[in-house]
Computed example of a mutant assay.
Amino acid sequence: MLDPAEVAARTAWGEARGEGLSGMQAVLNAIGNRAAYPGWWGHGIAGVCLAPGQFSCWNVDDPNREKLISVDVADKVFLAALNLARRLCAAELPDLTTGADSYYAAGSRRPLWARDAFFKISIGRHRFYRVGLMGDGR
């Protein structure tokens, strides 16, 4: 069985290790917001992280993949991501994204799903959006 905190930490590290603690926390928040409302993007924290096509760092052809598989706690940034991910799994991680479940790198081409109506916040070099429905219909 996969440890959800470790999978989430590897995802946050692979996606945002250059974005500091707040950038990695924001990625973890998006993971947590997806896991809270399971659907096409996966079920549970590990399932959300590993769902095909959802987090590019896990793509077989992504150069980050081998790095995130082999990183360990000797890497201080990964250790920080792991500590944040443990807080996510314990439902103790504040949501910096105000409910975002999706994001993209600000310097890349804007995805079709990233409509202004869904924009939540920019954190570091990522723009965060709420694409899925929350339990209250927002």
Rank of each mutant, 00 (worst) to 15 (best):
F55M: 14
R110V: 11
R130E: 02
L88W: 02
H126P: 00
L50D: 13
K76Q: 09
Y103K: 14
L96P: 03
P111I: 09
R86G: 05
G47F: 01
T97F: 04
G132D: 14
E15N: 07
L112G: 05
E66N: 07
E19P: 13
V77G: 01
S122F: 05
R115G: 10
L84G: 11
F119R: 10
R138N: 11
P52N: 09
S102K: 00
A30D: 04
C89T: 07
G20K: 08
G23Q: 01
D95C: 04
D3F: 06
G23K: 08
M24E: 02
C57N: 03
G132V: 02
L68D: 00
Q54C: 05
A74R: 07
M1D: 13
A51G: 14
V131F: 08
G18W: 00
H126N: 08
D116P: 11
K76A: 07
E15P: 15
V48W: 01
P111H: 09
A8W: 04
G99D: 14
E19L: 13
W13R: 14
G23M: 04
Y103H: 06
G32Q: 06
R130V: 00
A16N: 00
N33K: 03
G47W: 03
P63L: 09
A36G: 01
V48F: 10
P63N: 09
P63C: 14
N33H: 11
I121P: 08
A5W: 03
K67P: 06
D61E: 14
V60R: 12
A51Q: 06
G20M: 08
G124P: 15
A81W: 02
K76S: 11
S108W: 10
R86I: 09
R130Q: 13
A8S: 15
Y129C: 07
A114M: 02
A114T: 10
A30G: 04
E19V: 07
P38C: 06
V48A: 11
V48E: 03
I121S: 09
V71E: 06
P52F: 05
A74M: 12
N83S: 10
V71T: 04
C49G: 00
V71L: 03
R34W: 00
A36R: 13
L50S: 05
L79E: 10
F128E: 11
D95I: 08
R109Y: 15
R86Q: 15
G107N: 15
R87F: 09
P4D: 01
R87L: 05
V73G: 13
S70W: 15
V73M: 14
L21T: 14
R115D: 12
Y37P: 02
A91S: 13
N29E: 14
D116H: 02
D101T: 13
L112T: 01
A12V: 07
M24L: 01
L112C: 03
T11E: 03
R65T: 03
A81G: 12
G23C: 02
K76V: 14
